[in-house]
Simulated scan of single mutants.
Amino acid sequence: MKASKGSVRRFPSDAWYAVAHSEEVGRSPVGRVIHGTGIVLYRTAQGAVVALADRCAHRPYPLSRGEVVGDLLVSSYSGFAYGPDGRVVSVPTQEQVPVDAAVRAYPAAEYAGLVWVWTGNPGLAARRPLTLLPWLTEPGWTTFGADWETAASGGLLQDNFADITHVPHLHPVLSPPVLRQAPPRLHVEVSEQQVRFWRDFPATRLQTWQSEVTGLSPDAEFVQREEGFFASPGLWTDRWDVLTADGPRTMHFTHALRPVDDRRTHHYWAVSRNFAPDRETTGILRPLLEGYYRRVKDALEVMQDLIDREGPAKEVRVRADAAMLEVRRVMHRLLAEETAR
């Protein structure tokens, strides 16, 4: 194997990452892995989410194999009992708790049906609030989605989100006709920690499925707009608008990434729309979008396998890479700032 460190892009710790669906976290401990490190989740008696390091301070045994008693998490191997702050409050073999006996506690939050954990410096968590996702929380939107683990680095997923010109080649049935033409100019806006890009496609007819789900005429031509947003290392959103006289038919795509390790990424995706809330429309869209994301998953795993086998190589750049390159620069800068701290 010729893989080198240069073939994998690390993810910063100073970021919010979605680690579970809210309904997955209850009064029984749940284990997750992020950045190669275990985290255990559970709820207190009042329903608050607790996130602790998933390793007993006494012996190398996962706390996620323990049980919740009141608000305490008790190791099923050592019997050490941990409070929501990670401190050991009782030891079964002695009255005195050893000084500094504790595991790390992580800032945790619930939003948009997901549990988010801040894995870096806890003092920075409040200064970088979660990105608002109103299409997942407000009325007027219909959403479906899924999640799975992709055997590829999170950087490869980010590269994929930043350039949709591959869609006609990867899934021709899904691709709107405008993507089969030379793409118009891509506008890219960069801030210290985020990247936003957009472009307007000239008026053309809709793909068959687009006309069917939006109720728009298959013979009419519509301007369409693509928008992408690198919100944070663990969150990416996209938007696709079909512009009409009575307002856009909009589809929002949400991607929450959890880097399990350098070569495995948990991917939660959701598709939200502001039109046709009926189940029949979902029945048309779900197989199309899920089929596309599974093709992306397969393609990225092939890429990762090639990188692992042959190592990194010089890549030819084209204009469509503009947003991808800016995302890479922001990721590099976030990692550099974190290392400096």
Rank of each mutant, 00 (worst) to 15 (best):
V195H: 01
H266D: 02
E227M: 07
V260S: 03
R264E: 02
G247S: 14
R263A: 14
E189Y: 14
R239K: 14
I164H: 12
Q210V: 00
R196S: 14
G283V: 09
R239Q: 15
A276R: 13
I284W: 07
T281Q: 06
L186E: 12
D246A: 14
E212T: 14
T208W: 10
I164W: 15
Y268M: 08
Q193I: 01
A231V: 04
D261M: 09
R263C: 11
L235V: 02
V178T: 11
V188E: 14
P176T: 03
V223N: 10
G283T: 08
V167C: 04
H169R: 13
W240R: 12
L179V: 00
D238Y: 04
V260R: 01
L174D: 13
F230V: 00
L206G: 01
E226H: 07
F222Q: 10
P218A: 07
L285N: 01
R273Q: 06
Q224D: 09
L206F: 03
A231K: 04
V223S: 13
V190N: 08
T237M: 03
T250V: 07
D241W: 07
H255R: 09
L235M: 02
W236K: 03
P172R: 14
T254W: 10
T214R: 04
R225Y: 05
L235D: 00
E226A: 08
H266P: 01
R273W: 01
R258Y: 01
T281P: 02
A231F: 05
A203S: 12
R225S: 11
P277S: 08
A245C: 00
E227T: 13
R263F: 08
A276E: 06
V167F: 05
W236M: 04
L285Y: 00
W269I: 06
H166I: 07
F222M: 07
S272P: 06
E227P: 07
G247M: 11
D238P: 00
H187S: 15
E226K: 06
A245G: 01
T265S: 00
R258L: 15
T265D: 00
F275H: 04
V167L: 14
E280T: 12
V260A: 01
T250F: 02
